[in-house]
Amino acid sequence: MASRSLDICIIDDEIVVCKRLQQALTNDGHLVETFVDSRSALERIKEKRFDVVVTDIRMDEIDGMEVLAAVTEKGEDTKVIMITGYATIEIAREATIRGAFDFLSKPFKPNDLREMLVAAAKTLEVHDRP
């Protein structure tokens, strides 16, 4: 399924989400870093360029929208995938308008994310080529 290895950053205050997504994506051959705490994730994003950032929208302190803002501000070609629960779907739609690549509604399966990553990898390749 994996077209190429991607640098992926996963941010969710649910530790189980971090653990399982890391497991799934590492299996696929991606490089995965996970953060339960969005503040340290933001610091890491400042240091390192990721191909894809997968972030939960509702988190204490810094929420997904701020993460999105930080990534887009950096100006690099990083795809942001938002994870949304029931109550934040409107915010997720707004996020796609503001430049997010796509959003995932909880509960989702690992394959849902995988399909999205494939799509993200494709656009990244298209951009990489010239």
Partner: peptide, 19 residues
């Protein structure tokens, strides 16, 4: 709020069982 709150454990269960 409750649906949102319920979706978190559901999501965890789904991801964990799938994996």
């Amino acid at each position: 709020g409750i649906a949102h709150e319920l979706n978190n454990p559901l999501n965890n269960i789904m991801l964990t069982s799938e994996m």
